[in-house]
Design a protein around this nucleic acid. Structure first.
Length: 893
DNA sequence: TCTCCCTCCTAA
DNA sequence: TAAGTTAGGAGGGAGA
């Protein structure tokens, strides 16, 4: 938000209100003749425009430059710009028009520091890359690190990218280069900037002081710097935001991950002529960065929002919602000759507190086998603002203050309404439920109602167009983005009025009126539904703007029929544009608590197969591990599909056994929570993410997670009575340290069963009893696990040699139990089969590993512990142990 | 054991 | 500096 001139800051809104509202002789013309928003923002969408939309927004002459670099690190440490030289820089430049001096839209290249090579083009390295999908690289060889920077500067000048990006630009990519340049006393930052600035001390170094650069943003004059992982956080909901994981979920493509040590070894040809693999690795990533952006249409959508709100591209990404609201609202206000209030911090702090809360009903917690209708008021808060003309510019303050000539508190400031003016407005006022008065639209239409009306109308238009162009994926995506942007701005407009903590222009009277009117609207609708006997309906839950209506014993057809009737009747009972929309039918569903429910959803009568739809429960939350979500979701689906609790029991017991026996994939047992940065916690906070981050920092100061990063961890076994925080480990530690074992009983009894219990206890099932009923051998197995871990010497082999018979699972000390020994023929066939399947599995996994490492066999030092396939390979190793163990048993046998 | 506080994440 | 809001459930630790 550009700062308003100081002279204007003191001009308060209320005086403008008075001037506009009460100056005699002024005609009420603005709502008829005043400029419409259609002209202001170009909101009008014609079919033609829609068809052109995608191509229009694609040719923007924007140049993107994705860059990653490799630095030679020391042993297992991550590269440190104070010590480790940059060896190689990789880039991919893309534009929507041919690049300068080229006939293509993109260039991929690298600058490599290598004294042995000349800068002759077409050298050996490029040839080695023929195997990978990327070819035609621009390769530049340099002999010194300094020249590396020089060449990069040349490239930036030649292609002049608007957007610089890297997957992680704080510690790697651009951030590393800037820090390294500072260490080399090179003024890299201002050289690649588009602005002529004299270098100052602060500009040369970026985040030199690591204590306070948690939120350090990189600013290059005239260019936008994108930190891709951080943007991905708001783009896709994932458990972990590593490049590999995001690429897998967004592009459905697997990328291997190697550590810096492996890459450095390949670069130095220490393990053979593998330099091409290191180049391939980085080239895939620089290209992958751009692929991610394209797949998500990130640039297109951000530009779209920038246009929609009338703000700059990087402001869409870096500024908050108040900024967007102001950008739109002030344009409308300016046309009407209003000026916004700029309250001081003190004024804001002295504003009265809000008094109204949205309605959240306590649901009737149970399993519903009859249809439950879900009806939502469409954009309720904006609709109310429009319908009742609620706005700063139409509010006359609390009713109790009216009628005197005194100035009274109003929002952050104060207001005076002379009694004679008030009397002239008799019958032209509306009173909100919390006794705040507003003038009717016939006196004056408010700024917010004007703005929102246009936004909502446009959104409805866009949604209609989406239906018309259902088949066109790209266009649908664009329109979806646009309508989402409109919805967003409509919804946060209320937040703007009620932002009493950080607001730039909050006004409790307006905000409170909106909440209270919304609450009253919902309560009225609930009453109407409950009291209309012919529907035979009962409201069982409601939250802010939604109603869950139970139709006991009704069929699906009846449900859809009644749903439409209710929506129409409630809509008719409210002023336009307040509209109750019949969203969906749940059949069946479970309402657990406030804001937590799950059901099978039908959106139309024609729909054959229901869609699983959950809100707030563990299947949609990221604070458990994937196993929790998977088991819960599968159980719910089983329950809904089969309506047979014994099937659920069978399934849950099988999954619990899988975990207790250590057969579950470790990836399903990894928690990941957001790390707030070292300074983001209260002193003494006991949080796994912080614990892990501290340990990582202690090992390597460069490896501390970034603020906002999701830090993975697992819970391992430990002595009884130890607090949980002592059992938190990084997944890598679990893999590398043979004495560590997954804390299976914790996962089962503290993670998987409680959410299941919350759900199934509603139908009278005790899942903890299912756990008690598990076969004795399994629980003994788990208990043994525990004691073995406490003994700190347990290994897989040791474990196998002491507990159970590989044939029947019975506990024994003899390898194969006595009962099986009496049937040697059958047992040997069974065991050979087991060996065969284990070995086949191992061969398959080896093939996977080979495809990404290129090694003929799997060798732990070459395949980093970060390799996404390694988790599976380790399972194989355990499997191999089992295979060789069984072999040894057979030999003895 | 119960209560309070902190943390995390989601619904609206 | 710049920052939309509140409600809500749940887990875990510290201390009464």
């Amino acid at each position: 938000m550009p700062k308003r001139p100081a002279t204007l800051q003191r001009m308060v809104f209320k005086s403008q209100i008075k001037r506009r509202m009460f100056s005699p002789g002024e005609k009420e013309t603005s709502q008829i003749e005043g400029p419409t928003l259609n002209n202001t923002y170009g909101f009008k969408i014609s079919q033609q425009n829609l068809n052109n939309a995608k191509s229009l927004h694609e040719v923007q002459h924007l140049t993107l430059m994705s860059m990653e670099m490799h630095a030679r690190s020391r042993k297992h440490l991550l590269p440190d710009p104070d010590l480790d030289p940059v060896c190689c820089i990789f880039y991919h430049i893309m534009c929507d028009a041919p690049l300068p001096g080229r006939d293509t839209n993109d260039v991929t290249g690298l600058i490599i520091q290598d004294a042995a090579h000349s800068t002759a083009p077409g050298s050996k390295d490029a040839g080695l890359l023929a195997r990978s999908e990327v070819s035609g690289l621009d390769v530049i060889h340099v002999s010194k690190e300094d020249q590396l920077f020089h060449e990069l500067e040349q490239i930036v000048h030649r292609f002049d990218p608007d957007i610089l990006l890297g997957y992680e630009v704080q510690m790697l990519s651009w951030g590393y280069l800037l820090q390294r340049a500072a260490a080399l006393k090179r003024n890299f930052k201002s050289t690649i900037s588009r602005m002529k600035v004299e270098p100052t001390e602060t500009q040369v170094g970026v985040g030199k002081n690591e204590e306070d650069d948690d939120f350090a943003d990189i600013h290059i004059g005239g260019r936008v710097v994108l930190n891709l992982w951080s943007q991905m956080r708001s783009e896709v909901t994932l458990n972990i935001y590593s490049f590999e994981n995001v690429a897998y979920h967004v592009l459905h493509q697997r990328y291997p991950l190697f550590n810096f040590r492996t890459l450095s070894d390949w670069f130095d040809n220490k393990t053979g002529p593998f330099r091409w693999k290191m180049v391939d690795y980085y080239v895939c990533r620089v290209v992958g960065n751009i692929k991610l952006l394209n797949q998500l249409d990130f640039i297109g959508r951000t530009s779209e929002l920038a246009r929609l709100f009338g703000i700059q591209f990087h402001e869409v990404l870096s500024r908050g919602s108040q900024f967007r609201v102001e950008s739109m609202m002030l344009r409308v206000a300016k046309l009407l000759n209003y000026i916004a209030v700029s309250p001081s911090v003190q004024q804001r702090a002295h504003m009265r507190a809000a008094e109204c809360l949205p309605l959240v009903m306590e649901p009737e917690s149970r399993f519903y086998s009859s249809p439950v209708l879900v009806l939502d008021f469409q954009s309720l808060y904006p609709s109310i603002i429009i319908a009742y003309n609620y706005c700063y510019s139409t509010c006359l303050g609390r009713v109790e203050h009216l009628g005197t000539n005194n100035e009274f508190p109003f929002g952050c400031t104060s207001l005076k309404v002379p009694p004679d003016l008030l009397s002239s407005l008799r019958n032209k006022l509306t009173i909100s439920p919390n006794r705040v008065s507003f003038v009717k639209a016939s006196v004056r239409k408010g700024v917010l109602p004007r703005m929102l009306e246009e936004i909502l109308q446009t959104r409805i238009m866009v949604k209609h167009c989406m239906k018309d162009y259902y088949g066109d994926g790209a266009l649908t995506r664009l329109l979806h983005a646009r309508q989402l942007g409109l919805k967003l701005i409509a919804n946060v407009t209320f937040g703007y009025t009620a932002a009493h903590f950080s607001g730039r222009m909050p006004c409790v009277e307006v905000g409170d009126s909106i909440v209270h009117k919304a609450r009253e609207t919902l309560e009225r609708a609930i009453k109407q539904v409950n009291e209309t006997k012919e529907w035979g309906a009962r409201v069982v839950y409601g939250d802010t703007d939604s109603m869950f209506v139970l139709l006991e014993g009704a069929s699906k057809e009846q449900a859809f029929h009644t749903g439409k009737e209710i929506a129409a009747a409630v809509t008719a009972a409210n002023p336009s544009p307040v509209k109750l929309k019949f969203e969906k039918v749940y059949l069946p569903c479970v309402l657990q608590t406030k804001k937590r429910y799950v059901g099978y959803m039908y959106e139309s009568l024609e729909q054959k197969d229901p869609v699983y739809d959950a809100k707030g429960i563990e299947t949609v939350r990221r604070d458990g591990c994937p196993a929790v979500a998977k088991v819960l979701e599968r159980s719910i689906k089983l329950l809904f599909d089969e309506k047979d609790i014994s099937r659920v029991k069978q399934y849950v017991q099988r999954q619990c056994m899988k975990i207790l026996e250590g057969r579950a994939s470790m990836q399903d047992l990894i928690f990941a929570k957001e790390y707030r940065g070292r300074s983001g916690y209260k002193p003494g906070a006991c949080v796994p993410a912080l614990h892990v981050a501290r340990r990582m920092f202690a090992c390597d100061r460069r490896s501390e997670p970034r603020a906002g990063e999701r830090v993975p961890y697992v819970i391992v076994h430990g002595a009884p009575g130890l607090p949980l925080i002592q059992l938190v480990r990084r997944p890598q530690e679990l893999l590398q340290e043979p004495s560590l074992l997954i804390n299976a009983p914790y996962y089962v009894s503290k993670q998987i069963l409680p959410p299941l219990d919350r759900l199934l206890s509603l139908i009278g099932v005790d899942v903890f009893r299912w756990y008690q009923q598990l076969p004795r051998s399994v629980r003994v197995w788990a208990a043994h696990h525990q004691s073995a871990a406490e003994g700190r010497k347990a290994t897989i082999v040791q474990y196998f040699s002491t507990v159970n018979c590989p044939v029947c699972g019975e506990i024994t000390k003899d390898g194969i139990c006595g009962r099986c020994r009496r049937q040697p023929q059958e047992v040997s066939v069974l065991l050979l089969q087991q060996i065969h399947s284990q070995e086949r599995r191992q061969a398959q996994l080896l093939q996977i590993c080979r495809s990404c490492t290129g090694h003929a066999e799997w060798k732990p030092p070459c395949c980093s512990t970060d390799c996404p396939t390694l988790f599976r390979l380790l399972v194989t190793e355990k499997g191999l142990c089992q295979a060789s163990y069984i072999r040894s048993l057979i030999d003895k046998f």
